[in-house]
Design a protein around this nucleic acid. Structure first.
Lengths: 204, 204
DNA sequence: TTCTTTCTGTGTTGATTGATACAGAATTAA
DNA sequence: TTAATTCTGTATCAATCAACACAGAAAGAA
């Protein structure tokens, strides 16, 4: 504990929350230092002293997002005992999280930085790694369902994971383009019904 | 025809093609005027004289993309007589276009500008409108299949259109994140098999 | 040739970006 | 009090951005 010196005049966690909301709404590149300091209610020297840099602040914001919004989406995946229940809750939680009133539409992990990878390399790689982790999490869940005997042994869990990851990523774009909650739910329910075709049919 | 005055020293269509490739690879915001003039082989006054502005150049590049790459993806949708054939060719053409060697991975319409909508408003709206057009095109194709008796009269063509649009958008992100051609094809084939569940099952 | 028109290359403009220098303010330790 | 430490506010830094001014070059028209 640093008790010496002038105490900080703002709450670090609250400022981080405001930064997360701004990054979520506008993305890393489009959130200027002016935007950030205004949203956080502090001067830029205070921001640098408390968080290090704009990039480090973004990484902390992403961690906060994962620990809060991300948890709402992903925790049910492993909790549900059946693969059908897991995918159902995963997709419906996604639809709900991407259209929550008062929150920016879509996902910070997908929309939070330029997908061209040319902006800040560290920022782009941070999000890309998170997305890859999510694909891996889906893959493990499908593999578990195969091991549990819920799905045939020749089930292509890698393809299913990529499929549902792509669907979720696309839902972010649809949400950001203005799709309402009902549309996102319709996409989710369509994705749920797809699973019934996947676990019975052979590869085309 | 303007025959008077000093003739242009570069081919306008070739320069536009180079600009399209750059925008496709790096997006609007991350393609600086320096990048553009180097890729196009001209000075910035020549660029402004020939295309008006960076934004106008981008809009022309998007039109060129739609007329070439977009055509490869979308023309089969209406040409195929069955809805199964149409969706199959649509998704497989998407997978192929998004992983063509020598071309940037993913789609210019999805990845070409900040999805936060805060960069250049006109540019973001241009792409958003194109994406909305694509959703409408899918919707019309599914509605046609209902009218043809291929799908039940209570089939939710709007949900199906949103579902496949989201899937295609997500494929762009997967491609940009490094997914190879085989993975994109696996996603496409999974999407094709989904259709078999959708045209028989009732809403959940 | 001479005039008019249009394009090209160099150089620059004002605005905005992320990041800091500096001095003063606020706290604890001695 | 006095010294040491840490934060805050102003003011500014160099770099980069898109866009353009200007003069010279290259063509047709007369």
């Amino acid at each position: 504990m640093a008790e010496r010196g002038r105490p900080r005049s703002f709450d670090r966690q609250t400022a981080l929350l405001r930064a997360m909301e701004l990054f979520w709404a506008k993305g890393f590149e489009d959130s200027s230092m002016t935007d950030l300091t205004q949203a956080m209610g502090i001067g830029s020297p205070s921001l640098y002293a408390a968080f290090g840099s704009k990039e480090a602040l973004f990484r902390e914001a992403v961690e906060l997002y994962q620990a809060t919004v991300g948890l709402r989406i992903w925790q049910s995946l492993d909790d549900e005992t059946t693969i059908a229940g897991a995918i159902e809750r995963f997709l419906l939680a996604t639809a709900e999280a991407y259209s929550t009133p008062g929150e920016p539409p879509g996902c910070l992990i997908v929309l939070g930085a330029s997908l061209s990878g040319r902006g800040d390399a560290v920022v782009c790689e941070t999000l890309r790694t998170r997305r890859a982790d999510n694909v891996a999490r889906l893959d493990q869940r499908f593999a578990r369902a195969v091991a549990d005997g819920e799905l045939p042994s020749d089930f292509d869990h890698g393809a299913a994971a990529a499929f549902y990851a792509a669907l979720q990523h696309g839902m972010s774009i649809m949400a950001r383009d203005g799709a309402d909650a009902a549309t996102l739910q319709a996409i989710a329910r369509t994705g749920i019904r797809s699973l019934y075709a996947l676990r019975t049919a052979d590869a085309a």
